[in-house]
Design a protein around this nucleic acid. Structure first.
Length: 425
RNA sequence: GUGGAUGUAGCUCAGUGGUAGAGCCCCGGAUUGUGGUUCCGGUUGUCGUGGGUUCGAUCCCCAUCAUCCACCCCA
């Protein structure tokens, strides 16, 4: 019989890895609380139309990467490929956007049917931030500062670069798009196959191409920044002023365009060179038109999303995994002999009652003294608590330090509880 | 979706057209109740899967699945 395997590109998170994820998630929760952002959780399934209408019909995500299927009613459903659309839908549907501002964040799995690669999986996880009702540029700057604070907390700040651009208003982009299309058509012979295909569907993305044969032609192409109206220009200038004042370095990348249609004005990416070809670790921007596009009243919005797998990978690559994230339990209770085995479980309960902060692993399944103390060592515990025949006869408990040069102690149980309280205050 | 590389023990990897090995791990012992070092002994495999060639395939061929890398895409 063939063993069933996990779906391609979808990974199990194993116990060895989960402490690092929990550490990362704890950093996120604390960061969001400190900036006054509140968590929102939405279903991972949505009506297909939500993504088609928000991300854009002619984007790669919608055209060929979504997990779309019919449910038993014949409705077309899609596993969310990103978080913004769901967040906007939920905020609209629940009245969160009515005459008020919102600062929201979310975290969870996203799904895209791409060819798996390092830092790119079919089920992957994002943390996203979305804000509504604020025109910026102060809020644009705030979310960038928030992300910068996270990099500092994780020790990543010196390993990431902030790239910045403005896509202007939708009107700006329309004009620019025409100029750009005209330019590319006049250099049609230099375009590669992909670019020719995009010429009609999404010409801005041609600017992103890494094809060296096109590099010079792209460098000469009209620049979006020159097509910005006064308002967008002022917005962008104010944002860069705020970042300058906050001491956040950035690189203006006029060819930074995002793959999702809903962005306008500010777009940014945090990138790293340490992860190979999947170097974007966090990206986002302003999407003032999206709420209206989805049927709501027009309301400005900015947000970003970061890829958790990529950030975890980056922490590991740069050896920034904090040692305390993989610490074992405080104590490991061994029970040698039949009488002790019978009592250990209840003794464990008593200890947990008396010491609410103690992390205690109780040995189950018997075995020799030697094998049990080996387990205690392997568990990573700081202490071994020893319950054997001798200790039982004395109503006592032994305490051995597994990581420190200290004498072993044997104390009556009540005294041992006080001793442990002192050790794990 | 395109191109390339790789799939052998739980892990990291050797290996041969006559159906397999090392190190680590794990278990036991040296040490009747003391781990992390040492020594001794032991367990572990549909050689990714399905076909084909062959007297015989883990090895050669084809397909397929998976992983990795680049393109692409994007977080």
């Amino acid at each position: 019989m063939k063993n069933i395997q996990a779906i391609r590109g979808m990974n199990d998170l194993l116990p060895e890895q989960s402490p690092l994820w929990q550490y990362f998630e704890a950093q996120i929760r604390s960061l969001m609380r400190r900036y006054g952002y509140r968590e929102i959780r939405t279903p991972i399934l949505e009506q297909t139309a939500l993504f088609a209408r928000s991300i854009g019909e002619v984007t790669d995500i919608v055209e060929k990467e979504m997990y779309t299927f019919e449910d038993r009613n014949g409705d077309s459903l899609t596993l969310r490929p990103e978080g913004t659309a769901s967040c906007v839908r939920a905020a609209m549907e629940n009245g969160l956007l009515h005459n008020q501002t919102q600062r929201l964040w979310y975290q969870g799995p996203m799904f895209r049917h791409e060819r798996p690669q390092k830092g790119r999986y079919r089920q992957f996880h994002q943390v996203g931030v979305e804000t509504f009702g604020m025109n910026g540029p102060d809020i644009d700057a705030e979310i960038i500062l928030l992300s910068a604070r996270l990099w500092k907390a994780l020790g990543l700040f010196d390993h990431v670069t902030l790239e910045l651009n403005s896509l202007g208003s939708l009107a700006d982009r329309r004009v620019y798009r025409e100029a750009l299309t005209a330019y590319f058509e006049s250099h049609f012979d230099l375009l590669d196959e992909d670019s020719r295909r995009r010429l009609t569907s999404n010409p801005l993305r041609i600017l992103d191409s890494k094809n060296p044969a096109m590099a010079e032609m792209l460098a000469q192409a009209p620049q979006l920044l020159e097509y910005l109206d006064d308002e967008s220009r002022a917005h962008f200038a104010a944002l860069t002023d705020l970042l300058d004042a906050a001491g956040i370095a950035y690189v203006i990348n006029p060819r930074l365009v995002r793959g999702l249609d809903y962005y306008s004005r500010t777009v940014f990416e945090w990138t790293t060179t340490a992860l190979g070809s999947q170097g974007t670790v966090c990206a986002g921007g302003r999407y003032d038109g999206l709420v209206e596009q989805l049927g709501g009243k027009p309301i400005p919005a900015v947000g970003f999303a970061m890829g958790i797998e990529r950030l975890i990978l980056l922490l590991e690559t740069l050896d920034l995994v904090p040692p305390e994230s993989q610490r074992g339990p405080d104590a490991y209770l061994l029970a040698v002999g039949e009488r002790a085995e019978r009592e250990a479980l209840l003794l464990g309960e008593n200890l947990r009652d008396a010491l609410p902060h103690l992390t205690l692993q109780v040995h189950c399944g018997g075995g020799s003294f030697k094998s049990q103390i080996k387990r205690a060592d392997k568990s990573g515990a700081r202490l071994a608590l020893i319950l054997g025949e001798d200790e039982l006869d004395q109503g006592a408990l032994g305490l051995k330090f597994l990581r420190e040069e200290r004498d072993q102690e044997t104390l009556p149980r009540d005294a041992m509880i006080e001793r442990l309280k002192a050790l794990f205050r």
